[in-house]
Design a protein around this nucleic acid. Structure first.
Length: 839
DNA sequence: CTAGGGTTAG
């Protein structure tokens, strides 16, 4: 059985536990009457605002203290277990009715979602001859509904039919709802057809179910059936239908429903007007929505929120916020939900100051601890790149929901702390808290950033089991994750299983093929994408150009670049120009690359010059190389890559004095080459190696294995005189022996002795693959017959039978790099490393 | 049971 790797205990475990404890208190708090001082605060707030705007109060505050006695009942537990009743019962307690305790237990089990136990207990009750009360059936059916357990639902229904002669209309509706919510419309229809007495509720349930499942026509047939039966539709019937009229093609039906509502005399009800208004918003008829909204006599915060949603969906954040101010001025009582949309508008504008002011309102109103206001607050701060504030906002939420955690996971991913994101996920999972498809999407993303195939595959399996793979979002994340973990085969499978891939999904698979060096497949996919009528975007073209770059397709790249604007209406960005510079430079067309840098409509950035410099190094053009490096060092004097490339350029041209000067400069500025490191995952455990590493428990075996191949390899190289040191790691002269124990060789040797012969050996490396090790891997694949995959800072290399998929067409580490921190290095514990992952 | 609104992702 697949199990998500259990990570070491983590402060979040404690946090989760604490939140759990706080949860019970929060429930009690929620039962208390609304806090009167908060409503008073709203009034003061508006007064202040009105004063500020020099307006006279339009109408007296209609806010009143809303007292009730709910607090008195707050202490009554919502369920009673058998144990507690028997142990705490004293002689004063009146004798319980027969089967009362058993039925209470059944209700309690249902409320706790313990369906399996409930079913077992039901069977025990059967044996004991205790009858099941209608109340128990209601709870059981509700639990099946919530857990979408059709099988248990069917069992309960069957049992109900056998034992209860004349079930109430309400109980029959419970059965109907259970089938609808468990997704079996066939069963639902059968129950509906056989119902002795259909009330309005029954019609609502079945009609909404059909509408929700997309069978709008069927639900409207039922609507006219109902009218034929002489049943007067009430507002619930209408709102049940209106809820599912959600796109512009349905606006005509919406208008018809609207006119029905007017004729039936229900048009003064706030809820139904709100529903009509929201229907028009979702169908894109904004004028209609405003018309309905303005004609409403009484507008509460629900109505206002609905219209604000319309504005934010149309990306009119300012208008949404104007509406909010208007709402405050009219003295509408605010609730938590208003703030979610207000904060979304602030996040859309990336207006940190405005959001902070809204945060202030929230605190004043006492909504800070409420999930509904607190979660959007967390999201707002994450979107405004203010992670510390997001953490503080999260801490204040008394009962965080899966959405709150989801926002935090995004926050951690955004600051590059993917490990923490994964830890929260495992923590939530181990504590059986609710997970959702957004969380899984974020986790797939974290797995590709960490290049953790093992965790990624487990999370995937886990998500399948819970059916929490989001259509397109989750699917695309999986494609990227597998391709970035070196498994293009899985990525392809994940992609092929998407029924209708969109731009992002296509881009993910094209990009995957590009980085694995399958240029022709990538370009073919690009063609297929257009055949499917999916439009490419800027990112798609980066993937297409990357494919050309890794295979030296200069003319094709030029053609794609030229067609971007004219044929596809996508404006090239600096990323596209840098791809093009890279393509020219790799192909040795250095003058073309330089011309492009000078003439492109953007100021060249670090990447532009690095691409040119890389080309100058491979094609030994000292003249241009100097220009490139001067510009590069001017843009960023701290970037070691510039010095290293320049050093190599001088060294390869035999200019040793200049080379030494560059090295001296590096030392003076205290710049160091990044430590080269390789890792391989075997049976879920990551084994990391640095050059000459002897910390691994199987060190002896590894070196013995390496010796075998190094020997044959050295013989071969000495014969051909191939032992060159032209890679990045040769910046500092190193001994020949050191070359033989480069980290990737250690990882390969370990892979050979610890994995089955029929599987590929997949190695990850933080820097670019060195020429000698690249040759070594080719040699190894030839004499062992194993497939070897090496992902370096630049791309994937697939070695097979002495050949590499890159056709030796890889040059230098460049392009954007993502800094990732990885803990727990093998043998160097608690050391934090920064790996450059280019993909 | 008994209406209408929001927040998270590729």
């Amino acid at each position: 059985m697949l199990k998500v790797a259990c990570l070491p205990s983590h402060p979040f475990e404690k946090l989760v536990a604490r939140k759990k404890r706080q949860g019970s208190e929060a429930v009690v708090e929620a039962l208390l009457p609304p806090c009167s001082h908060s409503t008073r605060l709203v009034a003061t707030l508006i007064q202040k605002l009105q004063h500020h705007l020099a307006l006279s109060p339009s109408n007296p505050s209609r806010l009143s203290a809303n007292n009730n006695d709910a607090a008195k009942f707050a202490q009554i537990p919502s369920w009673v277990s058998l144990k507690r009743t028997s142990s705490s019962s004293s002689e004063k307690t009146p004798p319980l009715q027969l089967g009362r305790v058993e039925n209470l237990h059944l209700v309690s089990l249902s409320k706790q979602a313990k369906l399996k136990e409930a079913r077992e207990f039901l069977e025990q009750m059967d044996k004991a001859g205790v009858s099941v009360s209608p109340r128990s059936y209601e709870s059981l059916l509700e639990a099946c509904r919530n857990l979408e357990s059709l099988s248990v639902g069917r069992y309960i229904h069957e049992r109900l039919r056998r034992t209860v002669k004349n079930p109430s209309g309400f109980l029959e509706n419970c059965v109907l709802r259970m089938y609808c919510d468990c997704g079996s419309l066939v069963d639902a229809q059968m129950v509906f057809d056989e119902m002795a007495e259909r009330n309005l509720g029954s019609w609502v349930v079945i009609m909404s179910a059909y509408a929700q499942a997309g069978f709008l026509e069927k639900s409207f047939w039922l609507f006219s059936d109902m009218i034929e039966f002489g049943i007067e539709p009430n507002s619930v019937i209408y709102t049940g239908l209106l809820k599912y009229l959600v796109n512009p093609s349905l606006v005509e039906i919406g208008r018809q429903v609207h006119s029905h509502v007017i004729r039936s005399g229900l048009s003064s009800i706030v809820a139904i007007n709100t529903a009509i208004c929201n229907m028009y918003v979702k169908c894109g008829w904004f004028d209609g929505a405003k018309l309905v909204f303005n004609q409403m006599d009484e507008k509460d915060s629900v109505a206002w929120t609905g219209l604000m949603v319309g504005y934010t969906q149309a990306r009119k954040q300012r208008d949404a916020l104007d509406l909010f101010v208007k709402m405050l001025m009219e003295g509408v009582e605010l609730d938590q939900f208003v703030f979610s949309i207000v904060l979304k508008a602030c996040a859309g504008l990336e207006d940190l100051n405005l959001g902070r002011q809204i945060h202030g309102y929230i605190v004043k109103l006492g909504f800070e601890t409420d999930v509904s206001a607190g979660t959007p607050l967390v999201d707002f701060y994450v979107k405004c790149l203010n992670f510390e504030s997001a953490c503080r906002a999260f801490e204040r939420i008394s009962e965080p929901s899966d959405v709150s955690w989801s926002a935090m996971i995004c926050g951690y991913s955004q600051i590059g702390n993917y490990e923490e994101a994964v830890k929260i996920f495992t923590s939530l999972r181990n504590n059986s808290l609710v997970l959702n498809s957004h969380i899984y999407t974020s986790i797939f993303q974290a797995c590709f950033a960490l290049a953790d195939f093992n965790l990624g595959a487990q999370a995937h399996a886990d998500a399948i089991k819970r059916s929490l793979i989001s259509h397109l979002y989750g699917d695309s994340a999986l494609v990227s994750m597998y391709s970035k973990c070196g498994r293009l085969d899985y990525a392809t499978r994940a992609f092929e299983s998407i029924p209708a891939p969109d731009t992002v999904a296509w881009t993910a698979i094209i990009s995957g093929n590009a980085h694995h060096g399958n240029a022709s497949e990538a370009l073919e996919l690009f063609g297929r994408m257009q055949d499917c009528g999916v439009r490419p975007n800027a990112v798609t073209f980066v993937a297409v150009l990357t494919a050309c770059s890794h295979s030296g397709l200069v003319t094709e790249a030029k053609r794609y670049m030229d067609s971007m604007h004219s044929q596809y209406g996508v404006d090239p960005t600096i990323d596209h120009y840098n791809c093009m510079i890279d393509i020219y430079a790799r192909a040795g067309l250095l003058q073309e690359a330089f011309e492009l840098i000078k003439n492109m409509p953007f100021d060249p950035d670090k990447t532009s010059w690095k691409c040119l410099l890389g080309g100058c190094w491979t094609h030994k053009n000292l003249e241009l190389g100097k220009i490139a490096s001067e510009n590069l060092l001017q843009l960023d004097p701290e970037d070691a890559a510039g010095y290293i490339l320049l050093f190599n350029l001088y060294a390869s041209s035999g200019k040793w004095e200049e080379a030494a000067r560059v090295r001296k400069l590096m030392t003076e500025r205290n710049l160091k080459k990044e430590l080269s490191c390789s890792w391989i995952t075997v049976k879920g455990k990551v084994h990391r190696f640095i050059v000459g590493d002897k910390h691994h428990p199987q060190t002896e075996e590894i070196y013995l294995k390496l010796e075998e191949f190094n020997h044959s390899m050295t013989m071969m190289n000495d014969e051909n005189g191939l032992l060159t040191k032209e890679d990045v790691s040769s910046t500092f002269p190193e001994r020949k022996e050191q070359l033989l124990v480069h980290s990737e060789r250690l990882a390969m040797a370990f892979g050979l002795i610890s994995t089955p012969t029929n599987t590929p050996i997949i190695i990850f490396k933080n820097l670019r693959a060195c020429k000698d090790c690249h040759d070594f891997a080719k040699h190894l694949s030839d004499i062992t017959g194993r497939r070897i995959v090496v992902r370096d800072a630049c791309r994937f290399h697939h070695f097979q039978s002495g050949q590499c998929s890159c056709n030796d067409y890889w040059v230098h580490a460049s392009m954007s790099s993502v800094s990732v921190t990885i803990n727990g290095l093998l043998g160097v514990e608690n050391l934090r490393f920064h790996f450059h992952l280019c993909l």
